[in-house]
Design a binder for these strands. Sequence first.
DNA 1: ATGCCTTACGTTATACGTAATTATT
DNA 2: AATAATTACGTATAACGTAAGGCAT
Lengths: 275, 275
Amino acid sequence: MIELMQLKQFAVFSEELTISAAAKRLNLSQPALSRSMQQFENEVGVELFERRKNRLTLNENGRLMAEGAKKILTDVDNMIDRIRVYDRSRRTIFIGSCAPAPLWSLSPMLNGLYPNFAITTEIKGDGEITAGLRSGVYQLAVTAAPVEGYLCREFMTERLSVSFKPGHRFAGRESLRLCELNGESMLLANQLGYWDELCRREMPDTHFVMENTGADFEAVAEASDLPFFITDISEQNLHRIKGERVIVPISDPEANPTFYCCAGKDSAELIKKLF
Amino acid sequence: MIELMQLKQFAVFSEELTISAAAKRLNLSQPALSRSMQQFENEVGVELFERRKNRLTLNENGRLMAEGAKKILTDVDNMIDRIRVYDRSRRTIFIGSCAPAPLWSLSPMLNGLYPNFAITTEIKGDGEITAGLRSGVYQLAVTAAPVEGYLCREFMTERLSVSFKPGHRFAGRESLRLCELNGESMLLANQLGYWDELCRREMPDTHFVMENTGADFEAVAEASDLPFFITDISEQNLHRIKGERVIVPISDPEANPTFYCCAGKDSAELIKKLF
DNA sequence: ATGCCTTACGTTATACGTAATTATT
DNA sequence: AATAATTACGTATAACGTAAGGCAT
């Protein structure tokens, strides 16, 4: 039977034009490749080469075969790739969350519960997350409200505050409404989903200086005089800055959301295992 | 590297549903196939089977792979077939002749000169043969006149006669014109090309009783009282009938044509080898 | 002389079958 | 008991590399 390795060797020869060069590229000795191609020609049952004493070239049949062989080889590669991607998708839990904080605990929990699965997370607005859950993009969704028709469990509540430099005019307040902050220049991280939407809705005139989440944000926050948001969850991350700052809670109900873990019937066991 | 034999084995397993049955169909021992499939799974790097203690079944990946494997295998088969057909077409000499007789000697000659080639012959009218030569359908054409722009050599001359029963009114003649035979009922073979056209042109009112060439025609000619055409070449074939018959030659120049072998530049060596 | 292809030959590595093991129906 | 898959083990086939030969540039 014709084998893929022979097709591969033939394809390489058709590019290198000599057995010697092709053998080198294939990590094979010259005689081995020579024999392999003779056998291949026999198995096909058709002359593929023009044999001069000192030179081996493809004939018309061979040129046709070279095209065909390359096509077969890429087809096989594509097939294998497709199956690997398919397998990966079956071994991946896709999570959509409308805020970063729930993922900080959720990801490690799932990694522990499903050690053979990859966890892919995405942060988007609450609406997009709900839509993604309904369309099947996410096996698990973290939303700011239960989703009709899906198994939902309260996961955590996050409480928003603002961190001011001590001299700031709001630094003495016991609490604030978001609308009071409208127009203020503030630091804001990227990829905040729900929080991002909330801020842009309630504080349309505020200028937000954007920074990436994580270490970048911490560094800028520490160096800057601008106020920025923290929550009872993110406090844990930003504790080093806390001392030089005054924390004022936000009293709007939307600023103290409860997040829900939601899953469809197919993934109901995800929820069950989590709680 | 993944090999076609593994794809084949996998495809067979996907149809037989057990390693045992598949191994039987593949003329392999059960353990050999079992190992081969384990190795295949490893090479793909993706789980393809669901392993229960006593039962081996395809999982989702495996079902996808089975489809893909079958497609690859048929693609390979088709490719090989295409190349074989292509090779055959390159190893076939297509000859068009305007009459049967030249082929009787030409075919054996070419078979001897080109033992690796298949000879395909076709008998058609002189015009069609010339057109076929010009369009490249024929590497070699036998025509009743040289063809402009092609290498042509006189090949043979054929002389037409009529064979009558001794009592026939034309039986005493030394020669005849074709027009004199117009209206006569005659035997005529099929697939005569030039001769067919000539008869229909010169003897439009004659009723021809058609028979296939070869043994059929001989048998009917022997049994029938009808006159029929013979030539100096075909005489050799019909010698058994000759004795009870009277042969009268036809004097029209068109009834004594010279046939030419014609070939284009690509096939000039055909002509050269023939003469 | 150098590069390229092929044949010859001894060796190694892979693939096979038999036999044994375990588990299921 | 019968069927199915896997593991273990010795063997045989095949594929390989080295060496050698022939031929052309």
